[in-house]
Design a protein around this nucleic acid. Structure first.
Lengths: 347, 347
DNA sequence: TGTTAGCACTCGAAGAGAGAGAGTGCTAAA
DNA sequence: TTTAGCACTCTCTCTCTTCGAGTGCTAACA
């Protein structure tokens, strides 16, 4: 077991190094403790810690850096547990929900494939989908007790589903009745009147009414789901292979720029739909793109979904090859979608 | 319009530069043409091309580099169109299908959120899912003609769906009958006998039999879908912000390593399930990870899906914070899934 | 015995200077 | 019009030097 003061000093060194990424010298630490300690004292402790294999020097007169062993000790015994603020937790939960709503696996797959094929960094931007109307719903019981139902929502071109877990059971006959009511309301476009309509047949807070409420909320979510833009950036590592981006700072800047949906959207507006657009360096307007080129094209899915898919690379990219690959891919994208709707959430 | 020879030289310069990323000198080009040209001749042409704003020098005696204008000219008129080989197209199509099968939007969302929250690069690895059994299916007509059906597959904890577009119409009554047959076969686990069973009620190549075949193929696909591992790497750009990875080559190497599912799988085996695992530098065994640490934990979804989610960062990462964030997130992940199944494909 | 001030020493980072080499423009000859 | 020859320019690389942060050691002090 390490004496208290050594422990304290080691901890300070590790935390300082975590924050600053610079080797820690004895002077730097002077102010970090309750009791004032001279740099010489700290130096003595440090050299002992080094003998114990907890600190390392990169050369004779550099500051000290924690050894692997020290990190291990820190992780196992020294570090204070970090408490996540309620706010932070809440933000996490919200983010998760948003992301889940946005996810669209066809487009993600598209970005992965294009990035692989072209061996370049790829971006996909999906415009908010066409205003598909809900056509009908279906409730399929998933257990014998009537506590779990699969809600299936049929839209013009899409099918989505959700598993509903209820507090109180609803018999499958009631569910069928409910389905009928709801589908009628949908047909007549009077969903807002539904609660009143149901009040007659079921109780105010009956399990059926609660189920109906869940269904309605899913429907209205589905209708106005895609307010924003979804975006996927794939193959970031490939950008780093180009000598133009051997400067990691420059590369990071560009990548972060391309990871921001708003920036990408700004870049691809004014692109001509249905053909390959090539933006060379400063043609991109955004100064961060001055040394990069963007080859992109619009895509149309069978069901009205549309957006933009493109490749970012240094100006000296192989335009001919990338253009051909992109246009072939987009053609395929249209074809694949027609018989491959997996209920991905909102295609 | 540019004279032929100038055009030829310009094209050669651009293509050479695209391939080599080095400024192109007159000597380099000497062998590139049908007719032999001396370097001096080429130099003369080059200096004229420079006057026209098509070439640039970085300094008085460097080779030439294409200007933005030159790229534009190249893209518009000079470049040969690239033909994709049939093989390449086929590979693209296959990749797309594989990727689509693997996609799992909950996990993708998870990786995005964790990467954002921790502000680090994040990896999610999903083990192949538990062997969920198909419980029943449902066919919901989507149009009046009977050409489009939504196929809904209810498993133990999951619901998946697919839109089937038929060549020949099937009446909804027949579909209902078919559904009954299929569900019976599923209950008795005699799906292989189904074709024979149907032959009695419907014709050998009747629309109904074709529909049944599609349903069966979807079911069996669903059963053995996840043979491999799915993986998502998010926030690669964040790694570049650390001074440890200012060397783009090193960063690229690590990122490509982390983008390979097999490597990641090797890294996280031996992790203790249900708790935060911290691997510091060489503890990761793989030499490519010697300077990086991995903080990871296993997750369990409500429905039996499970896998690993983790954060990669330099050894001096904030272990306390990241650990707390990860464990809070995993807890949330379990909770969210219970009432938020969107039919994402195989959770 | 533990702590501190002082000092010589070490080594990397940053800057200056020299030499090599690649590529140019210009001139004159073919 | 093309080519060979040559002086010139500028970067790249290597070496050398200086500067400074940080150390270890010694001796004085509490």
């Amino acid at each position: 077991m390490l004496p208290d003061r050594k422990q304290m000093i080691l901890k300070a060194i590790i935390e300082n190094y975590i924050a600053s990424a610079e080797p820690v010298g004895s002077k730097t630490l002077m102010g970090s403790f309750d009791r004032p300690l001279s740099s010489a004292t700290i130096r003595n402790e440090m050299s002992e810690l080094e003998e114990m294999g907890l600190l390392e020097k990169q050369h004779v007169s550099s500051g000290r850096v924690p050894s692997n062993l020290a990190y291990r000790l820190y992780v196992d015994r020294l570090m204070d547990s970090y408490r996540m603020a309620a706010m932070e937790l809440e933000r996490m939960r919200r983010e998760m929900e948003n992301k889940l709503n946005e996810m669209d696996s066809l487009l993600l797959a598209a970005s992965k494939v294009v990035s692989m094929i072209t061996d370049q960094t790829t971006v996909v931007l999906a415009s908010d989908s066409s205003d598909e109307r809900v056509r009908k719903i279906e409730l399929i019981p998933m257990d014998a007790e009537g506590l779990t139902y699969a809600l299936v929502m049929v839209c013009d071109n899409t099918v989505r589903n959700k598993v509903l877990r209820l507090r109180a059971p609803v018999r499958s006959e009631s569910a069928a009745l409910l389905t009928g009511f709801i589908n009628m309301s949908i047909r007549e476009d009077r969903l807002q009147d539904l609660p009143g309509l149901l009040a007659g047949s079921f109780g105010e807070n009956s399990p059926e009414a609660l189920l109906a409420a869940e269904v309605i909320s899913f429907i209205s979510e589905g209708g106005s789901e895609k307010t924003g833009y979804e975006m996927y950036l794939e193959g970031a590592a490939r950008l780093l292979r180009n000598r133009e981006y051997q400067d990691a700072e420059k590369a990071g800047e560009l990548l972060e720029h391309m990871a921001d949906p708003e920036s990408v959207r700004a870049l691809v507006t004014k692109g001509l739909p249905g053909q390959i657009n090539i933006r060379i360096g400063p043609e991109n307007e955004d100064p961060k793109m001055a040394d990069a080129s963007l080859v992109f094209t619009s895509y149309e899915l069978g069901n009205g979904g549309h957006g933009v898919i493109g490749v970012v690379a240094p100006k000296r990219m192989d335009y001919a090859k990338v253009s051909a690959q992109l246009s072939a891919f987009v053609k395929m994208l249209g074809a694949i979608d027609k018989n491959n709707d997996k209920g991905t959430g909102g295609l």
